[in-house]
């Protein structure tokens, strides 16, 4: 698997887009630190950007890569290599190269700014961890869509819709349901609904760590009350792991049955 991972990784690293993605975070990091002139404020602003942006980039790159690597995949399938190795290798190649752009792109400006000497290092670290989780989750979801649909336009459409749904529509629906069912006890409901969306979950994970109750909102407050800060964090990391595991399992399943 490592060889396939390596080839997919280099393939992406050589493409212009991973440099653009890397440069974007680099500029963003420096700009935020320059404007806010405080690491902790920058972390909060970054959270809002990362939580929307990493899933989107993961989705687009995931779909694009699996479609454009079709030839490579067919070549590999005729070689003595296990199917699951091919697809998991490609998946990890994409997810890792995107994660690397994120971690290095933001890591460099914050390091220059002295994040290691500041108390914010753990908050910043957690921000990168949840960004990485979101990348792995959404690349996996996008890979599933690309494997399932031969038609590229359809595949792209579904992938973008899933991102839009998770990042924007979901919250809207959630909010409406909270208002409509205002008279009922909604603690458990909102706990479950939050866990069903990795983007919401990452937001709460970071906010719990930052310990800013003003920003937690209703769901965050419920989360904190139910789990407490520490257990809440472990619980949400656990759920994020499940969120990564399920689509990866389906990559394996779908690819095992697919004809090439």
């Amino acid at each position: 698997m490592f060889k396939i991972l390596q080839y997919s990784f280099y393939d992406l690293v050589r493409s212009r887009w991973s440099y653009v993605y890397f440069a974007f975070y680099l500029v963003l990091g420096f700009a935020l630190l320059f404007l806010n002139s405080s690491v902790s404020k920058s972390v909060i602003t970054l959270m809002n950007i990362i939580i929307v942006l990493t899933p989107m980039i993961g989705t687009i790159f995931g779909v694009m890569y699996f479609y454009s690597a079709r030839e490579f995949t067919e070549l590999l399938l005729a070689q003595p290599i296990k199917r699951s190795t091919i697809f998991l290798g490609q998946y990890l190649g994409v997810a890792l190269s995107l994660t690397l752009s994120l971690v290095l792109g933001l890591g460099v400006p914050f390091m220059v700014y002295g994040v290691f000497q500041s108390s914010e290092i753990w908050n910043f670290g957690l921000l990168l961890i949840s960004g990485s989780f979101l990348t792995f989750i959404f690349v996996a979801i996008a890979s599933n869509i690309a494997l399932k649909h031969e038609n590229k336009i359809k595949g792209f459409g579904y992938a973008i819709f899933i991102w839009l749904f998770m990042a924007v529509i979901y919250d809207g629906l959630f909010l409406i349901s909270l208002v409509v069912f205002n008279d009922y006890p909604l603690d458990k409901f909102s706990l479950i609904v939050t866990m069903l969306n990795p983007i919401d979950l990452s937001r709460i994970l970071i906010l719990l760590k930052l310990d800013i109750s003003a920003l937690l909102g209703y769901t965050g407050a419920v989360f904190q009350k139910f789990f407490g800060t520490n257990t809440g964090m472990f619980a949400s990391i656990g759920v994020l792991l499940i969120w990564t595991g399920i689509p990866v399992y389906f990559i394996n399943r779908i690819s095992a049955k697919k004809d090439f």
């Binding site: 393939d11 005729a78 003595p80």
Partner: peptide, 29 residues
């Protein structure tokens, strides 16, 4: 999958990853 070590296959349409050189492709396989 192991049995494919004993098979050489020439696909009908030569479709390769486009941004690799011939040298890299042969080296990769």
């Amino acid at each position: 999958w192991k049995y494919r070590e004993e098979i050489n296959y020439l696909p009908q349409i030569a479709r390769f990853p486009e941004n690799l050189t011939v040298h890299e492709l042969i080296g990769m396989i």
